[in-house]
Computed example of a mutant assay.
Amino acid sequence: MKSFVKKAALATALASSAISASAATTGTTAKNEPTVVLVHGAFSDGSAWSKVIPLLQAQGLKVVAVQNPLTSLADDVATTKRALEAQTGPVVLVGHSYGGVVITEAGSDEHVKSLVYVAAYAPGEGQSIADLNKDYPTPAGFSELVADKRGFLTLTLDGVSKYLAQDVSPEQAALMAATQKPTNGKNFEEKVGVPAWKTKPSWYIVAEHDFMLQPALQEVLAKNISAHVVTLPSSHTPQISQPAEVAKVILEAVAEVAKK
């Protein structure tokens, strides 16, 4: 752990100096500097990144948190693409959980230079979340999913506090449960086209104590996309329980983009 912290701290310093060097050599303050675009997962919205965003902004980065409707994969990809098209410089595109499917599909945008998967699905061409899960035990948290009459899913309070985010405070879990966004269950059956990770360098954060996406599957996905892998002792929501560690990984990706 000590060696990881030292390495991550070095990456943070490198990212900061690379960004400053970019501005100094180009004479710009925005056009050629990396922007971090954050894509939330199911049962949440852009506020899921509220603890990570200030850490990235403190390094002088522009950050955009996409607000996806979770009504269909196509809708979420279209919303994310609009956010990407609005950028004028290189983008590090980050996705959590189901958001990994979204960035896999939307990440082919020319602005995107690298991808960061945070305890996220990274499907291959023609694959869906259902396809990826079929060879693994059903995650414990799935037992706490509730569907309404239109097929939109939410998690119970127990589902959030015991399985989605068991390593956050009870107050934080209650807030997450109260503000969650219902997700169309059909989203998990929709397949992606040519995955962006085939042509973009990727990072992957594996959550060791994840009850929503099997850690063993995460490790396989990270290997499949040839990602730089960091493993954290966290729940399915490390961006909330360990935001500094997640920010360090994002900054590593930013540093690589800033050097080019």
Rank of each mutant, 00 (worst) to 15 (best):
A21I: 12
A23K: 07
T26A: 12
T26W: 03
G27R: 07
G27M: 09
T28L: 11
G41F: 07
A42Q: 06
F43L: 09
D45P: 06
D45W: 03
G46E: 12
G46I: 07
S47E: 14
S47H: 13
W49I: 06
W49T: 12
K51F: 14
K51M: 11
V52A: 11
V52Q: 01
P54S: 08
L55Q: 10
L55G: 13
L56Y: 11
L56E: 00
L56N: 10
Q57N: 11
Q57L: 09
A58G: 01
G60F: 12
L61Q: 13
V63R: 11
V64I: 15
V64K: 13
V64S: 08
A65Q: 09
A65D: 14
Q67Y: 00
Q67R: 15
N68L: 04
N68S: 02
S72G: 05
D76G: 09
A78Q: 13
T79L: 06
T79P: 02
T79W: 03
T79H: 08
R82K: 15
R82S: 09
Q87R: 07
Q87K: 08
G89M: 06
V92Q: 01
L93Y: 00
V94D: 01
G95D: 00
H96S: 12
H96T: 04
G99D: 13
G99E: 09
I103V: 04
E105P: 00
G107W: 02
D109H: 15
V112K: 05
V112M: 03
S114V: 12
S114H: 05
L115P: 02
Y117V: 06
V118G: 00
V118P: 08
A119H: 00
A120D: 01
Y121M: 10
P123V: 12
G124R: 13
E125V: 12
Q127T: 09
Q127G: 04
Q127S: 14
I129H: 08
I129G: 02
K134W: 12
D135W: 06
D135F: 06
Y136C: 06
P137F: 05
T138D: 11
T138Y: 07
S143A: 15
S143N: 14
E144N: 11
L145H: 14
V146F: 10
D148H: 07
K149V: 15
G151D: 05
G151V: 14
